[in-house]
Structure formats: structure tokens, C-alpha cells
């Protein structure tokens, strides 16, 4: 297998964009799972796709459309359901329904629809790369500040309440951040690849990590390694990137599960001697 293909000029920009996505989404996923709201990733991704399609049909910038609709959804979620996955499930099916209807009635959006739903990373351009780089920088700094507050509120909710403090603004800020990250990621790697990068590395990290810091590192490493492998396979085998990434991630999850079974296998009991 030619491992240098990803560094060729034609593929380097999509590769670098996806690499940023693969490093950033698992971190957002850790905090979404912390709040038991991982379904938000799929909701934001579906809505970003719908927003992108609507923007394409209206002749507006695709990235702006995705960001706008997922951002509105993050703000509206606080009104639909303060916590939990109910609100996200409603937003997810709404995004999917709107996208499919737009694709059925606007043939011009067909090309973009395929990219968003099949995960054709190779169509990303400099806008995608710089937007994602800017998000990684701003989002990273924001999460450094926000992380303690989100963990504290989750582990000691009454601590906040008893002192008359409110965590609402922290949750809203994180929701907006997650929505923006998912919208940018969806525009680059597609709906299901973005969701998988949020969900699978986090699931494995929650099982294997011995601390929050370590779990964050595990999630990022899994996301990045699986992404590089999937990118290479998709490129060399001429396959759509999104499904290849999903299959790679599912394989990683299965491997981690099997490894855990082996590592924590109970020793067989020896029969008692009489």
C-alpha cells in the first residue's frame, strides 16, 4: 500500500482537513457522552447537512448554511428539552426529513447531497481547512476553560444549585460549540463519518481510560489513527471515504471490546480437592 499518497498535493488539503476533524470531534464527544447527550452529534450533523443543502439551493455559502441551522438548533434545544436526548432525536429526524425532501425537489443539490451523505472528503477546499483550523484553535481554548465547569456540574449538580449558581450558560456555550464543530465536520467528512468520530472513540475511551485526561488522549488517538487508516484505504481502493471510516471505526470498537474481554477474563476455577 502506498502510504505517501495522502501527502500528494491533490489529496493533502482534504487529508489535513479530515485530520483536524478526527482530532477535534472525539473531544466534543467526550463531553457529549458526559452529559449522556451523544445523540446530539447526529442531530447537529443532520441539521448541518440540511442547512448546507438549503444554502446551496439558495445560492448562499454552504458552510454558512450548515453553521446557521445547527447553531439555531443548539439554541433551540435548550427550549425543546433542557437535558436528555428527546430534543436531539426530534432535531435529528427533522434534519433528515428536510434534507431528503430538498434532494428530491432540487436536483441541483444532488452533487452536494451525495458528498454530505456518502462522505466524499476529497471535495473539501481551503475554506473547509481554514474554518476547521480556526475552530480547533478557538474551540480548544474554550474547552480548556469550560471543561472543569462541565465536569463539576455533572459530578456535583447540587453544589451549583445550593450556591445559587446556574450552569445554563455553560451548557449553552458547549451546545453552540458542539453544533459549530459538527457543522464544519459534516461539510468535510459527511453526516455519518462525523457522527462516528464523535461516538466510537469516546465509547472506547470511556471503557479504557483511568482518568479524564487519559480518556481524552485515548479518544483523540483512536480518532486520528482510524482516520488515517480509513483515508488511506479509501484512496488506494477508490472507495467512498465516509463508509470506509465507519467500517474502520466499527472494527476498532470490536477489537477494543475483544481485547477488554481477554484482559478482564476471570481465571477458570479449579475444582476443589476433597
Amino acid at each position: 500500500m502506498n502510504w505517501t499518497a495522502m501527502f500528494e498535493p491533490m489529496f493533502f488539503m482534504p487529508f489535513a482537513t479530515g485530520l483536524l476533524v478526527a482530532a477535534v470531534l472525539p473531544i466534543l464527544g467526550m463531553y457529549l457522552r458526559l452529559r449522556e447527550e451523544w445523540l446530539a452529534a447526529l442531530a447537529f450533523a443532520q441539521l448541518a447537512a440540511a442547512g448546507s443543502l438549503a444554502a446551496a439551493i439558495a445560492g448562499a455559502p454552504v458552510l454558512v448554511g450548515g453553521l446557521a441551522l445547527s447553531g439555531v438548533a443548539a439554541a433551540a434545544k435548550a427550549w425543546i428539552a433542557r437535558n436528555g436526548n428527546n430534543g436531539y432525536a426530534i432535531l435529528m429526524v427533522a434534519g433528515w426529513g428536510a434534507s431528503v425532501l430538498m434532494l428530491a425537489n432540487a436536483p441541483l443539490a444532488d452533487h452536494l447531497g451525495h458528498a454530505l451523505f456518502d462522505g466524499q472528503l476529497y471535495f473539501t477546499d481551503a475554506h473547509n481547512l481554514w474554518s476547521m483550523a480556526a475552530f480547533a484553535l478557538v474551540g480548544g481554548l474554550t474547552m480548556r476553560w469550560l471543561s472543569h465547569k462541565l465536569l463539576f456540574e455533572r459530578m456535583f449538580p447540587d453544589f451549583f444549585r445550593a450556591s445559587g449558581l446556574s450552569a445554563t450558560r455553560y451548557h449553552l456555550l458547549f451546545d453552540l460549540l458542539a453544533a459549530a464543530g459538527l457543522a464544519l465536520a459534516t461539510a468535510s467528512v459527511g453526516v455519518m463519518a462525523a457522527f462516528t468520530l464523535v461516538f466510537v472513540p469516546t465509547m472506547i475511551a470511556y471503557q479504557w481510560g483511568r482518568s479524564w485526561r487519559q480518556s481524552l488522549a485515548i479518544a483523540v488517538v483512536i480518532g486520528v489513527v482510524a482516520y488515517v487508516v480509513a483515508f488511506q484505504i479509501a484512496l488506494v481502493q477508490d472507495q467512498p471515504f465516509g463508509p470506509v471510516l465507519v467500517v474502520t471505526m466499527v472494527s476498532a470498537a470490536a477489537g477494543a471490546w475483544a481485547l477488554r474481554k481477554l484482559a478482564f477474563r476471570q481465571p477458570a476455577r479449579t475444582p476443589a480437592k476433597h
Binding site: L34, H148, L151, F152, R154, M155, F156, D158, F159, R161, A162, S163, A205, Y206, G209, R210, S211, W212, R213, Q214, S215
Partner: peptide, 28 residues
């Protein structure tokens, strides 16, 4: 301006979260 900490009776539901003891204490 009173600052209050509150320890609840049933903290066991949060065991799935990969947090170390040191990180737990650092939160408060």
C-alpha cells in the same frame, strides 16, 4: 454570597465516567 457544597446520598450512578479520585477532588 454564601458558598455551599452539597454531598448527596447516592453518588454511584456516575461510576461510568472515567474520572480518577484526584480529578474528583480537584473539581470542588
Amino acid at each position: 454570597g454564601l458558598r455551599i457544597s452539597h454531598q448527596q446520598q447516592n453518588p454511584l450512578s456516575l461510576r461510568d465516567i472515567p474520572l480518577s479520585g484526584r480529578e474528583l477532588l480537584a473539581l470542588t
